[in-house]
Amino acid sequence: MIPARFDYHRAADAAHALALLGELGDEAKLLAGGHSLVPLMKLGLAQPAALVDVGDVRELSYVDERDGVLAVGALTRYRDIERSELARRLVPILAHATGRIGDPQVRARGTIGGSLAHGDPAADLPAVAVATGAVMVVRGPGGERHVPAREFFRGFLETALQPDEMLVEVRFPASGVEPWAYEKFSRRAQDYAIVGVAVVRGPEPGIALVNMDSTPVFCAAASAALGRGEEARAVAELAAADGRPPSDLNGDGAYRRHLARVLTERAVRAAAI
């Protein structure tokens, strides 16, 4: 509960943050909402030598419609996404799933970029990004690159981000992201999902699972079956066969697969055309 010693830097803007990351090297971490990083540090599971606090970088906090995409700044807080008229209208699954994260305190602090960069397979937004076919805008010393969400998550708490890079924006398709459904199963209302599933029928059919592997799981076969208009049960069977579900106190692998099946079936039914 007491973090190891670390240095603290406060970035004035995105460029400053990147410069600090470049200077400080591998041992530095960005601090956004702090709601994943700080608990890890308190438990001794992360021991960064330096933190670069990007809490003041307001230029990366926005929800915009631009060139056919819903562009969300990486430092946009959950609460601002949840309440954004634009997000609710254009990518309702994003606004809805954001509203299911943790509790009001968590949503007041946590950022979309922090959640995606953290890469926790149990988190809600990674699966939403994968299901909707979002694209990550990553900025580094050499400029910007775009990484599709489906290629972004590499392993447990591991993403395509390099230590000197920063996630600056997430782009969601701005039209046709419907019908949709997000099913989250947890024991307590404010917990991470034991299993969750994000389903969108358009603009491309996409199904992604929460907490069924070391990364969010894109269910390619199930998504294709959804596109073919197959029955909810059949789609669910395919989805539940994906991933290598973990076992923990809340559920073993077999139970998680079962939940994936039940939740996907429910979500596909709920996302009826």
Binding site: D103, R187, R188, A189, Q190, D191, Y192, L249
Partner: peptide, 11 residues
């Protein structure tokens, strides 16, 4: 308290 599940008001 992530593993020891003390319920809260919504539960």
């Amino acid at each position: 308290l992530m593993d020891y599940l003390v319920p809260a008001a919504p539960d």
